[in-house]
């Protein structure tokens, strides 16, 4: 992958990965359409070469970074993570990528970098979904800096040992396994380090339904459905949803003292 070896990560789940064809044919990627099969059907509209990411804000080394530079000298790891969508379906995906923390350290953020804003590609000429006002384009997401620096937080460039398909967020995306899938922004074009909490796209559109944190939480319902159970794609029966998507022992400390029904 990108001419690099892939090391496998030992702390992963031992759950069976979702069938690869399923994982890349049932997606939410509104830039390519709002239906579940639209992203795959419209995959060819996403131009990924060349790709660079504008990195700016409270860091020592802002600039426009070509994808190749971001990957140079990095060891890619394969990590099998559960992915839980806010719509109550889930997958298990073997991602290939590197910890976001490694990138952040290299960029040397200042002490005022309290949050990280991520922005997806903006290309309404090519992306059919961006010609409709489903969301306020471009898509934006954000993390608190400690969430971004957490060792579980990944920048993925591949899955199932191959390059990311367009519908899964090629050429690089965020993966935050203890949060609902919409936090794991796809096709990143801009990263900004800032002092104020970013407003993510779903939060801006429906603040009653989607919050900034969006941690997987079976106790806190969505206004239109419950989050207590989920359907693993490819399996028939529903299974119980786990707090922080099962990563609680690694991430719960980030939210100590917070009322998660308010900061949902």
């Amino acid at each position: 992958l990108y001419g690099q070896a892939i090391a496998s990560w030992t702390d992963g789940t031992n759950e069976e990965p979702t069938d690869q064809a399923l994982a890349s044919s049932y997606n939410n990627f509104f830039e390519l359409g709002t239906g579940k099969s639209d992203p795959k059907d419209n995959a060819h509209f996403l131009r990924t070469e060349p790709w660079s990411v504008r990195i700016e804000g409270e860091i020592a080394k802002p600039g426009l970074y070509p994808l190749e530079d971001l990957l140079a000298g990095r060891t890619l790891e394969e990590r099998i993570y559960r992915l839980r969508c806010v719509e109550t379906w889930s997958k298990v995906i073997p991602w290939v990528g590197f910890p976001l923390a490694d990138l952040i350290r290299r960029l040397a953020p200042t002490s005022r970098a309290k949050y990280v804003l991520f922005e997806s590609i903006m290309d309404p000429d090519n992306l059919p979904g961006q010609r409709r006002p489903a969301l306020d384009w471009p898509y934006q997401e954000g993390l608190r800096i400690d969430e971004a620096m957490h060792p579980l937080t990944l920048i993925a460039v591949g899955m199932y040992g191959e390059m990311l398909p367009a519908q899964n967020g090629a050429p690089l995306r965020l993966v935050v396994p203890w949060k609902y899938g919409f936090k794991s922004i796809k096709s990143i074009a801009r990263i900004r380090f800032q002092e104020t909490q970013p407003l993510s796209s779903w939060e801006a559109k429906q603040p009653r339904e989607y919050g900034f944190y969006a941690n997987v939480n079976p106790e806190v319902r969505h206004p239109r459905w419950l989050q207590a159970t989920e359907r693993r794609l490819g399996e028939r029966a529903r299974i119980a949803t786990q707090m922080f998507n099962g990563y609680g022992d690694q991430v719960a400390h980030l939210y100590v003292g917070m009322d998660l029904s308010i900061h949902f």
Partner: peptide, 19 residues
């Protein structure tokens, strides 16, 4: 098909969801 007759979930959903 949705809830596989798991009565606790049926009840949970019914007791909480207006629709």
């Amino acid at each position: 098909l949705e809830l596989h007759w798991v009565w606790t979930v049926v009840w949970l959903e019914l007791s909480q969801l207006l629709h």
